[in-house]
Write a protein that binds this DNA or RNA. Structure first.
Length: 492
DNA sequence: AAAAAAG
């Protein structure tokens, strides 16, 4: 079976060959012929099965006839996260290199101007996250009644993220004469309902999970005491111990603040490290991801934004700095390594507070995970409230952090207070605490935007404990060698 | 209990 056998056009077949692919994957072989015939497709497949190409390739073939009109895109692809949307765009560029297609990427966190221009010029392919798409439509810059092909990707994840009402709205804006290609890794009842409502006589293509993670990924649990600096210490030792086979690694944290804290800590310890979470500005997100993919960063500390779908080939290690609370997330996280039949290693740092989550994970994967170096029974907790609520009576509370009631704030106020501003300010102090060489080599800081710092407590009133007080020996400076990724204005 | 997505 070749790509030409599937009925794809010569232009597409040649681009695929140039990309080095010869054999369609099962999802591609199953979906492409039907997609080319104009049928609705319900694809049940995980990422890493070649799912993206299974809609990109037939779409390219079908787009060869016809032309886009201003503000009326011909096709629309919905993705749950910005990075995934950008990744799909890359696929269209790669496989569409023999076509002259206008591609527009509509995602949040970047300016409207360029997106408006692309819409105005007429987009053959529109790739979007739901929020920004609806925003453009409300501004009258976008008409969806010319859409011939609609792709809904990662539907179950959209469900998790509460996007289903948006998806329904969008589906209702598009003529029912369209073709719909619908992909989901799992089929919970809500998703089934959605397919019944919006797909017409779909061809169902289901492929088994790519070789289950269990067979290609070595999984280990690593005991730790529960204080952050203790966990960081465990992690650093683990990284150093694994150094030999460690080509690159993703380190997952459960929370964004922890991503940012761990990132800064690893920076101070001179690891080659980047960070990725949803509160970072979009440029920093992209840069971090690109640098990690290109091997300029060895470690990437990330929230679950990176757990699914991102195509980062050949990650040698996954570290779970936190045990994921949802056991499915564990499977997604460790699935970032051991891809395409390669071997991967995963280490999950576990504290006494995590036992019930570990039990749930072991139940889900149907096997128990080996301890790397003895189990938790040997762990003594340092004095303090490890099992107590995070902020019990005596527990000192840090000013200006962890603003409770964040959820209740109007959305617009979200970025103003708390997490973005406070850690940044704290980071500044640390930078200043560093010796001259590193600063001398750094470029002048761009003028800082103080407009959203109104809610920040005055500098002199803050009494944070320096995070590093117990963080092991703190290295100093970078010398003259400032890595390229540091030169970006990353608000991590 | 947390993440993501609109500004």
């Amino acid at each position: 079976m070749t790509f030409a056998d599937l009925g794809l056009s010569p232009k597409v077949v040649s681009a695929v060959a140039d990309a080095g692919y010869t054999q369609p994957t099962p999802i591609q072989a199953g979906a492409i012929p039907h997609a080319l015939e104009g049928k609705d497709v319900l694809g049940i497949a995980q990422t890493g099965t070649g799912k993206t190409a299974s809609f990109v390739l037939p779409m390219l073939t079908r787009l060869e006839k016809g032309r886009a009109r201003a503000r009326m895109p011909r096709t629309l692809i919905l993705e749950p996260t910005r990075e995934l949307a950008a990744q799909v765009e890359e696929n269209f560029v790669k496989y569409g290199k023999n076509h002259k297609l206008n591609i527009a990427l509509l995602i949040g966190g970047v300016s409207f101007d360029e997106q408006d221009k692309k819409l105005e010029r007429g987009a053959d392919v529109l790739i979007a996250t739901p929020g920004r798409l609806l925003d453009h439509r409300e501004r009258g810059k976008l008409l969806l009644n010319g859409v011939e092909i609609l792709v809904i990707d990662e539907a179950d994840r959209m469900l998790d993220m509460g996007f289903i009402p948006d998806i329904e709205r969008i589906c209702e804006m598009i003529p029912f004469t369209r073709q719909t290609l619908f992909f989901s890794a799992t089929m919970p009842p809500e998703i089934t309902k959605l397919t019944e409502k919006f797909l017409h006589a779909p061809v169902r293509v289901e492929v088994a999970r790519a070789a289950s993670a269990a067979t290609t990924v070595t999984q280990r649990l690593v005991k730790s005491m529960s204080k952050p600096w203790e966990k960081r210490d465990v992690l650093r030792k683990l990284i150093k111990q694994e150094e030999e086979g460690l080509k690159n690694a993703i380190i997952f944290c459960n929370r964004k603040v922890d991503v940012s804290e761990l990132y800064k800590s690893l920076m101070r310890h001179e690891f080659s490290v980047g960070a990725l979470h949803g509160d970072m500005d979009q440029r920093a997100r992209m840069t971090m991801l690109t640098n990690f993919r290109d091997g300029k960063l060895k470690l990437l500390v990330a929230s679950d934004v990176a757990a699914r779908g991102l195509d980062i080939p050949d990650v040698s290690h996954v570290f779970n700095y936190d045990v994921p609370i949802h056991s499915e997330d564990y499977v997604h996280r460790i699935g970032r390594t051991g891809r395409a039949g390669r071997l991967g290693k995963s280490f999950t740092i576990a504290t006494r507070n995590d036992t019930k989550y570990i039990d749930a994970i072991e139940k889900l994967i149907g096997q128990s995970i080996e301890w790397h170096d003895g189990d938790l029974s040997t762990v003594e907790e340092s004095e303090g409230e490890t099992d107590a609520p995070r902020r019990g009576k005596g527990a000192p509370r840090r000013a200006g952090r962890k603003d409770e009631g964040r959820e209740r704030k109007p959305r617009g106020a979200r970025h103003d207070a708390g997490e973005a501003a406070a850690p940044k300010a704290e980071a500044d102090q640390e930078v200043q605490a560093q010796p001259a060489p590193a600063r001398a080599a750094a470029p002048a800081r761009k003028q800082r935007d103080w407009s959203n710092e109104g809610n920040r407590p005055p500098r002199e009133n803050r009494n944070y404990r320096r995070r590093d007080d117990d963080d092991g020996d703190t290295p100093v400076g970078f010398g003259d060698d400032v890595p390229a990724f540091m030169l970006i204005e990353a608000k991590v």
